[in-house]
Amino acid sequence: MNIEVLFFLNSLQVAERELEEKYREGRKSGVLFFPYNQLPAVRVADKEITVSHKDIFTEGSPGSWTCDFLVVDEKAAPGWEVDWPTRMFNAPSDREGFFSSSNPTALPAESGRKGVFVVGNSRANSSTEESLAEASAAAAGVSVLLAKPEIEAETHATVDPQKCALCLTCVRVCPHSAIDYGEYPEHKRSAARIFDAACIGCGICVGECPARAIELTTPAPEEKPAKTLVLCCKRSAQQARETLAAHKWTVPKDVCFVEVPCAGRVDTGLILKAFETGHERVLVLGCHEDACKSIYGNTAAQRRVDYLKKNLPAIGIAADRLEMRRLAASQVERLAAVQPA
């Protein structure tokens, strides 16, 4: 029997065991694979199924295929397992609705909230073996936490209850579910409260707080302004900088690098202050999409940068004097490419 099999796919993910082999086997036996950027159009008329597909390599006019059967990939949607941690920990889920299934900065089973682990179908659509592996990872994570008699807090944000307007912005945006609100007995008033042990000090809340009531060590640019100020996320750009420094890198003249806890700490006020201090150009270096330790710190920074770029001309500052770039800790060449002009 002569069967022709065509595969249309966006990207071929072969990260799971044996998938690469299966792909090769398929190729050998004549299966055709077509990657697409645009979902192919499907038309069903008189029991005849036609798939129109635009080739990404030739960018040519759509190819058309008639077939007897069309098999569509199942889409996994999160079930009830996702619901209760979402409510209980106000934990953010990823674009598909799962818990950080594809974030490479998270350890297996780790959630945004320190000490809360997610395994199995709430983390991603996973097989039994994967779930078991995650469960062991979660157990290992718990034993690390319990190894010490007390959990030591990292550098964390603090709230000034006198300034807090209780707008709840921080409670809503904290990707680590480290903030709630309640009474400060010594001040006899309610305000946002930070769980020291859960806060990783990303500073997204500091950048967002409208009352400037949250404090975290503020990144301090050098007194003497350089032409270009580069704000480096400590988990990517700053690490690339340290790698370069270890290799006796000559820092470009007139460029000043400042470490920030997360690109999400960088807010419009901080950027404007940098221009006021005399920096001609501000560059924000954050992690790649889906690779932010604080889940959306990088996109928060991007929003603010995009917003400000639209507003800079009214201040008399060309929009290209502000820029955000993405890199991984290993992409040292991207950092080395930063020039003062």
């Binding site: 409208p210 009352a211 807010d267 006020g269 404007l272």
Partner: peptide
């Protein structure tokens, strides 16, 4: 402040913009 239009943070932003 609560609707993110005119609290201490926006005051600093508007002041910075005016200076620049």
């Amino acid at each position: 402040t609560v609707c993110l239009a005119g609290g201490a943070k926006e005051v600093a932003v508007v002041a910075s913009k005016l200076r620049l």
